[in-house]
C-alpha cells in the first residue's frame, strides 16, 4: 500500500514538472509554473524519504539525509537570495554544476557498491558480474555528470570574471582526443578485472572532468548562456541515467524532459542571437567570432 502511495507521489511529481515547464514558457503564468514544479518536487522528495523501500527494507541513515538536506537547503536559499540580479546566470550555472556533481557522485557510490561486493574475486572481469545495461547507466551518469559539473564550474568562473578565455590552435582536436580517451577508459573499466577497474573508473571520471574544462574553456564569454543551457540539458540526461539505475520514473521523466527541452532551448537561444550552435561551439577558434 505504501509503495503505491509513493508511485502516486512520483506521478504527481512528473505531471507537475510537465505542466510547470509549460507554464514557465508563458509570461503570465511563469511564476506559478515555477512554484508548481517546486511543489511537485517537494512531494516527490518527501515521498522518497519516508516511503521508499527496496526488498521490503526502508531507507536508513535519516540523520545523514536530513543533515544533508538542511545544509544544502540553507546554503542554496541564502546564495540564491543574496545574489545580485546581474549575477543570476552564473548562479544558475553553479547550481547546474551541483546537479551534475550529484549525478556523478551517485554513480561513484553505486560503482563502489559493486566493487566492494566483488573485489575478492580478483580474476573476474567486471563484465561477469553486472549486466551491460546496468553498467552503462552507471558509467554514463558518471561521465555526463562530471562533464556537466566541470563545464558549469568553468562557465561560472568565466561569467564572474575569475577565469579568462583560453584557447590554443588545434584545441578541438585535443578535445576530441580527450573525449575518445574518456570513452575508451569507460569501456576498459567494464572489460578489465575487478581489482583494476576501480582505478580505471576514477580515471574515467577524471578524464571526463578534464573534458568538461576543455569543452567550455575556449568558448567566448558572450556565448556562455548558450553553453550553460547545453550543460543544463546534459545534467538532465545524467539525471535520467539515475532514473534507469533505480527504475525510478520521476527521475527519468524529469531528466529526459529537461534534456529535450534544454536542447531545444539551446537552439532557440542561438537563434535569438542569430548564430548557429555549431558556430558557438567551435566558432571561437582562431578568435574571429565577432561576425558569427
Amino acid at each position: 500500500m505504501e509503495l503505491s502511495i509513493l508511485t502516486l507521489c512520483y506521478l504527481v511529481g512528473s505531471v507537475t514538472f510537465i505542466i510547470g515547464l509549460k507554464m514557465l514558457s508563458n509570461p503570465s503564468s511563469a511564476r506559478n509554473g515555477n512554484l508548481l514544479a517546486a511543489a511537485g518536487m517537494t512531494i516527490a522528495i518527501i515521498g522518497t524519504i519516508f516511503l521508499y523501500e527496496e526488498d521490503g527494507k526502508k531507507l536508513g541513515n535519516y540523520p545523514w539525509i536530513f543533515g544533508g538536506i538542511l545544509i544544502g537547503g540553507i546554503i542554496g536559499t541564502l546564495a540564491a537570495k543574496k545574489v545580485k540580479m546581474t549575477a543570476m546566470p552564473e548562479m544558475v550555472s553553479m547550481f547546474n554544476g551541483m546537479g551534475g556533481a550529484c549525478a556523478a557522485l551517485i554513480s561513484a557510490v553505486e560503482f563502489d557498491h559493486i566493487y566492494q561486493a566483488n573485489k575478492t574475486l580478483d580474476f573476474g572481469n567486471m563484465a561477469d558480474f553486472i549486466p551491460a545495461g546496468h553498467y552503462l547507466t552507471i558509467i554514463a551518469g558518471a561521465i555526463i555528470g562530471s562533464v556537466s559539473f566541470a563545464g558549469s564550474m568553468i562557465a561560472w568562473g568565466k561569467l564572474s570574471g575569475k577565469i579568462k578565455d583560453m584557447s590554443f590552435s588545434g584545441q578541438h582536436i585535443v578535445n576530441l582526443l580527450v573525449l575518445l580517451l574518456v570513452l575508451v577508459a569507460g569501456v576498459f573499466t567494464y572489460q578489465y578485472n575487478v581489482g583494476f577497474s576501480h582505478i580505471l573508473f576514477y580515471t574515467t571520471v577524471a578524464l571526463a572532468l578534464l573534458y568538461g574544462v576543455f569543452f567550455v574553456m575556449p568558448i567566448g564569454g558572450a556565448d556562455m548562456p548558450v553553453v550553460i543551457s547545453l550543460l543544463n540539458s546534459f545534467t538532465g540526461v545524467a539525471a535520467a541515467c539515475g532514473g534507469f539505475l533505480y527504475n525510478n520514473k520521476v527521475m527519468l521523466t524529469g531528466g529526459i524532459l529537461v534534456g529535450a527541452a534544454g536542447t531545444l532551448l539551446t537552439i532557440l537561444m542561438c537563434k535569438a542571437m542569430n548564430r548557429s550552435l555549431k558556430n558557438v561551439l567551435i566558432g571561437s577558434f582562431g578568435g574571429s567570432t565577432a561576425s558569427g
Partner: peptide, 15 residues
C-alpha cells in the same frame, strides 16, 4: 526553471 527540475537527481542521492 529547467535547471531546478533536473534537480530530481536528489531522489537518487537520497536512495
Amino acid at each position: 526553471g529547467a535547471n531546478a527540475i533536473h534537480g530530481v537527481v536528489i531522489i537518487g542521492a537520497i536512495i
